[in-house]
Structure formats: structure tokens, C-alpha cells
């Protein structure tokens, strides 16, 4: 059994409870045991880093220092925002030991920062540490027939020099995992566009506009559902969907799943454990596509430009 240090973050106990609970189901199948950081604290997002640098570093550093006391060398984080704060702090501290020493004086009681624990988003953990093939091997109920648009949001792969994971503009890790589950990932160009994030509360109009575009492009790509790995993305796309529909006068009816919900489903967990009732947009319509495979594959016109490098014999 593998062990993984876990930083749940505040949303895991609130708006993204379904992310947290399905993540635990998935890791059970994958034989990974989670170990919570004892006495973890708020990561500081989004207020700390716009106000004071010291606080923005000190809050994640306390978690990092506490995590270093556990045996595991990797910390998995479900929430993209928590991941971002933790990763930024780790990278900056590792690059600049003087800064690390200065910030450490704030959290001196917890111990000295050593930089021994790696920080990964759960998506990155699935992709790099578990592997797409292992995931494929655990599938008992293929999601074939379901077309999904994988939406990564702004934080999971950016900025590139901090995350050092996947592509900052057109990432593919979640697409590959979804394909491993049997689903079809559509060609979706809005993978990393902004959803409006925390403006959801202070300036809802912005979110309706931005998230609306994402929903429109997902629909355009032919997806039945959107898959995310970030609580804020999920809440903006799902919770605000009725408002967006009202504003735009379009009916999207496109549910927004956490990647872990689909994994748990494909791993054969009973549907009643997947917390689908927590969704605002009903999921049943999308899930009904599972098993219904397009009988006629889409015809692709032969391109004029030769793409294959290898020679061919007439």
C-alpha cells in the first residue's frame, strides 16, 4: 500500500465535498492510503497573496513544514488553488534559501523548512505517480459512449516554470485519463481559459460571461459533460449554469464532473456513493450516453498536406 500526504483544503469539507469523498474511493481502488497533515491550516488563497508577501508564503510554509514531519515525500492536493499556493511557496523557497530562512522565522515553532516534500495536484499525482495504464487496468465499467470536455482551468498547469507539469496552453493529462476510463475526450480549445474564479461572489457578471463561453465551447465540441479537477471551476460552471442560461437564453444542460467522480464510476463504485445529487445540473442525461456508441464513425476528409514523415509505396 502506497501512502500519500494529503492536504484537503477548506472546500473539501464544503462545496467540493464530492471531490473529496470520491477521491478517497478512487485511492482505495488504487491502493493508496491518505495521511492528512496534522493541524493543517488555510493555504491563504486568494486574499493573502494580494495583500502581503510574508503571509502568502508563511501560511503554506507552515503546512509544508508540518508535512515534512511525515514519512511521505509527496503531498497531494485536491484543490487547484491550494495546490498553486503550496507549489509557488515551495518553488520560491527552494530557489531562494535566504527567503526561506526569513519566512521560516514566522513559523519557527513548527520547525525548520527543509524542502523535502514534493507538492503535486491530484491530477498530477494520478498522471505521474499512478500512471494512465494502471488506471486503465482498474476500470471495470467502461465509460464508452460518454464524450467529455476536459477543463483544466488556469492553475493546474500554470505558470509553467512553477508547475512543471503538462502544457500550460493545451494540456492533455486529464484527456488521457478520461480516455483510459473509456470515455471520449473532445477537441476542446477552452481547456485553460479563465472561468472567472473568485469573482463569482464579488462580480458575478464576469463569471457568467467567462464561464458561459467555456460552456458554449464545450457544447460546440460535442461533449456531453465537462470534467474538472478544481473546486472553483466546478462551482462556477455548475452552480452558475442556470444563471448563464438565463442570461444568454441558451439551454446548455451540461453537467460538470470531478475527474474523481468519473474514475470512481469507472472503477465500479455504486452510483449512490458518487454524490451526484450535489450537482446543480442533473447528471443523468449525460450518463445515459454510456454504452451508446456512435455507430457511424465521423468521416474525416483526407488532408491535402502530407503529415506522415515516412515514405509510402504506391
Amino acid at each position: 500500500m502506497k501512502k500519500l500526504t494529503y492536504f484537503p483544503g477548506c472546500s473539501a469539507h464544503g462545496t467540493s465535498e464530492e471531490f473529496d469523498s470520491t477521491l478517497k474511493l478512487v485511492l482505495k481502488t488504487l491502493d493508496v492510503e491518505l495521511e492528512d497533515i496534522p493541524d493543517w491550516n488555510c493555504c491563504g488563497a486568494t486574499s493573502a497573496h494580494v495583500m502581503t508577501e510574508n503571509l502568502a508564503y508563511a501560511l503554506p510554509m507552515r503546512n509544508l513544514v508540518l508535512a515534512e514531519k511525515l514519512e511521505n515525500t509527496t503531498m497531494g492536493i485536491a484543490c487547484a488553488s491550494c495546490y498553486q499556493r503550496m507549489k509557488v511557496t515551495k518553488v520560491h523557497m527552494d530557489e531562494n534559501p535566504e527567503l526561506a530562512q526569513r519566512i521560516n522565522t514566522t513559523v519557527v515553532e513548527e520547525g525548520t523548512y527543509k524542502g523535502t516534500v514534493d507538492v503535486k495536484s491530484m491530477l498530477q499525482y494520478f498522471y505521474e505517480d499512478i500512471g494512465v495504464e494502471t488506471i486503465r487496468g482498474k476500470v471495470t465499467k467502461s465509460l464508452a459512449g460518454l464524450k467529455v470536455a476536459c477543463y483544466y482551468g488556469c492553475l493546474l498547469t500554470r505558470p509553467k516554470n512553477i508547475t512543471k507539469f503538462d502544457s500550460p496552453e493545451y494540456p492533455v493529462s486529464m484527456d488521457q485519463i478520461c480516455e483510459a476510463l473509456g470515455a471520449t475526450a473532445t477537441e476542446f480549445d477552452y481547456k485553460t481559459e479563465c472561468c472567472g474564479a473568485s469573482f463569482s461572489i464579488s462580480n458575478t457578471e464576469v463569471v457568467l460571461n467567462l464561464s458561459g463561453q467555456i460552456l458554449a465551447m464545450a457544447k460546440e465540441s460535442g461533449a456531453h459533460a465537462i470534467v474538472v479537477a478544481c473546486p472553483l471551476c466546478q462551482s462556477n460552471l455548475d452552480m452558475r449554469q442556470p444563471d448563464i442560461e438565463k442570461q444568454q437564453g441558451v439551454k446548455y444542460d451540461i453537467p460538470v464532473f470531478y475527474i474523481t467522480q468519473l474514475m470512481a464510476l469507472a472503477f465500479g463504485n455504486p452510483v449512490d456513493q458518487l454524490k451526484f445529487p450535489k450537482h446543480i445540473v442533473p447528471v443523468e442525461g449525460a450518463l445515459a450516453n454510456i454504452g451508446k456508441i456512435d455507430p457511424v464513425p465521423q468521416k474525416v476528409k483526407k488532408p491535402i498536406k502530407a503529415v506522415e514523415a515516412e515514405s509510402e509505396v504506391e
Binding site: K305, A306, S311, E312, V313
Partner: peptide, 18 residues
Amino acid sequence: CPVKVPNEYNMGIDKRKA
């Protein structure tokens, strides 16, 4: 010549022979 290779001169838009 029966072998076709992407044509460098035409930036691979058509083919040349071996």
C-alpha cells in the same frame, strides 16, 4: 520511381520521389 516522400522544397505540401 514508386516511392513518395514529403517534398522539402514545397514544405511537405506535396510529395517527391526517392
